[in-house]
Design a protein around this nucleic acid. Sequence first.
DNA 1: GGAAATGTTTACCG
DNA 2: CCGGTAAACATTTC
Length: 276
Amino acid sequence: MPELPEVETVRTGLLAHVVGHKITSATQLHERAQNPRSIAPIEDLAGSTVLDIKRRGKFLWFELDRSDVLVAHLGMSGQFLIDPRETRHTRAIFTLKKGRKETALHFNDQRTFGWVSLERKTDGIPTSVAKIAPDIFEPSFDQAAVIANVGRRKVKIKTAILNQNIVSGIGNIYADEALWLARVHPESVTHEMSAAAIGRTLDCAKEVMSQAIKVGGTSFDDLYINVNGESGYFAISLNAYGRENEPCSRCGTLIKRISFANRSSHFCPRCQKKRG
DNA sequence: GGAAATGTTTACCG
DNA sequence: CCGGTAAACATTTC
C-alpha cells in the first residue's frame, strides 16, 4: 500500500527490468484491473516498446514508442512483480521481450483498488494525472504557493497534506511521520497556522520520504514489496505511525492514536502542539 | 463478529 | 458553484 517512497522504489525496479523491452502481449485478468477511463483495452499495448517510467506522487506511467501511455495506480495493495512465484492476486500480465529474453510483468492487487489504463498525454501528463499536484521532489513544486494555498484553507493540517490536489505523494504513514518530525499536531487548523509551521511540515515530509526512498520504502508485511519481491526497511525508522502506546523517541510520552477522516493518526501529545 | 489496513472518488451538506 | 466532510469501493487479517 504504497505512498511516494514505495511507488518510487517500484519505479526504480521497473526502470531496471522493463525499459527497453517490447510488450509482446498484455492480458487483463480481473474486471477491475483496468480503469474505466482507459481509452482502449490494455491488450492494444502489444507491439509497444517501453522507453521510460515516470512518476508524479503515487501515479506511475510507462512512456512508449507511441504517443499514448500506460498509467498505473497501486491503490492500497497493488504491486508490479517480475516473474513472481505468487500469482494468486495477479490482475493483469504483460509479456516482455528484449532480444531473446522474455519476462512476465504481473500487476498484482489483493484489494483491487489499484488499476492500469491506456491514456493520452497533455503537455506530457496523462489524463488521470492532470489534476494531481506536483509532488515535493518535482522541480515544478512551488513551496511558497503550496504554503499560501494551505494557509487559505480551514482544514486540519493532516487532511491538507493528504490532499493530492495540494501536494501529491504523501499518504497516511508519511503524513504522521512528517507531522511528528515537524512537531505539529495533526489536527492543527491550517488557517490558524503560521507559514513557518506549514513550511516546516512540508520540509519534514520531504526529509522523511527522502530517507524512506534510500531504504526501499516501508513494508509491514508482503503487501508492499518491490518488483523483485523484496521488502523495504523504513518501518524500523518510524517514530509515530503504528506506535500507539509506545514512548515518543524524543520525550518519552506515549504516542496517541486518534481517528478522523476515516483514518488513524498517531502523534505525540506532548511534542506536537496545535500552534507554533 | 467488529475493526482496521500505506487510497481515491463520489455523494452530500451548508 | 465552492469548500469541507463522510461514505463507498474489495479483500484479508487480527
